[in-house]
Write a protein that binds this DNA or RNA. Structure first.
Lengths: 127, 127, 127, 127
DNA sequence: GTGGTCTAGACCACC
DNA sequence: GTGGTCTAGACCACA
């Protein structure tokens, strides 16, 4: 279920975040589903609990999960208006950077569209 | 011409790389155009020459620029078959991650397509 | 273990690269073995950490080593298909240049073969 | 006849040296043949005369060519005993380094032998 | 003039 | 603890 690559240049805590976001978007993790505890998750993934903790904190900050003291951590109901304009701006900048990079790698607009179709095809497969 | 943000979390040398890639894709920097020398660029950007040098070296590895000994650094002619499959895989993974992130921010497929149209509109404006 | 000659005309970071490649080919450094940390290696060789870092980064680009975040740097398992055709072309050009140079120094084909036998004898001694 | 690549990482003056050594070994340039003057060579190759001059000086130091004042520069008769042991040691070290590099690129002894056969095949073609 | 290498020393993110 | 980035300033080879 979780893809973690300790060799990757991407920090492990970010990979955990990405995994949970993906499972949530795919509706495999649904609102009010309980996440494994920090320690369970850490031993599942063979990583340091601090790393998992950092991921959970960031996800909480982004209102994707929330913690109930003494109960555990749960997937949140997506807000209608996230309006975290900083994150939007950053994401759109990243999108721009990647389009440029892909441009240099021979991917032009239509080819990028096709790749995105593929990604959505995968994301919406479940649900 | 160059947008560098010293306070950004993205390393300066990567920002330089991104800027040059963008200018090259926009055809503002054309093949055989001379880039500012390492020292010129460094003083333009108020940055250490080593930082510029690192950016140039990475761009050279990616065959986007090349150096002529004692003369300077020049934009290369795009190769017909670059195909650095590692870079392609990484870029497509980033694209996937960003689509998921944008999904959580309320951007679904059609909205992402519109954003990419905007990006291409900007890139191809010159030419 | 490591032969570094500060007065050599060959850059120190390249000498470090060559040393690690040799130890790896001799199987003295085996896959998953941990390399000394950048700082350890730097103090071992009485060299600046940045210089070691540059060597490690180049070795990583060549997929001979890889880093695990927060853990250190490790010898990689040789890929089945590395095939960096640029590096192969460059190496064969160097081989050609050296054969010509050795030709001028009185080494002809058979004598070069004998030298290579010696080199392989040394490389395969361990293992 | 001359292959010079100003984009190469190898200094131009070394490329000139390599070219002349190769032509000499192939016996296309024979003892007592006159080389183009520094200026002729420079304009032939579109390089700076200083660069050609540096190459000629190094070739003279290696006793591969010699200058007759007022007459020009000529290919020397190969000495029976070059005994430039420094150059021999350096060349054999380079040979070793390249064998190791080629080892990492999937070329083992027999394959290297084959490459050398190819090189000699090319060198001795003329004669 | 150009880029390439190296040092000493600092700060940071990640685990 | 690890590696990654950056600075300031030096020296060198090449053209």
């Amino acid at each position: 279920m979780f893809n973690i690559n300790i060799t990757s240049d991407k920090p492990i805590y970010e990979q955990i975040i990405d995994n949970i976001k993906e499972l949530s978007l795919k509706n495999i993790l649904k609102p009010d589903d309980k996440l494994p505890s920090v320690r369970q998750m850490a031993s599942m993934l063979s990583v340091n609990p601090n790393t998992v903790s950092k991921a959970y904190q960031e996800l909480e900050r982004q209102k994707i999960i929330h913690t109930v003291r003494g109960k555990g951590t749960f997937i949140s109901i997506p807000a209608d208006y996230p309006i975290d304009s900083d994150r939007i701006i950053k994401s759109l900048e990243s999108l721009r950077t990647i389009c440029i990079e892909l441009g240099h790698l021979g991917f032009h607009k239509e080819k990028i569209f096709k790749e995105i179709e593929k990604i959505y095809c995968d994301i919406e497969k479940e649900g």
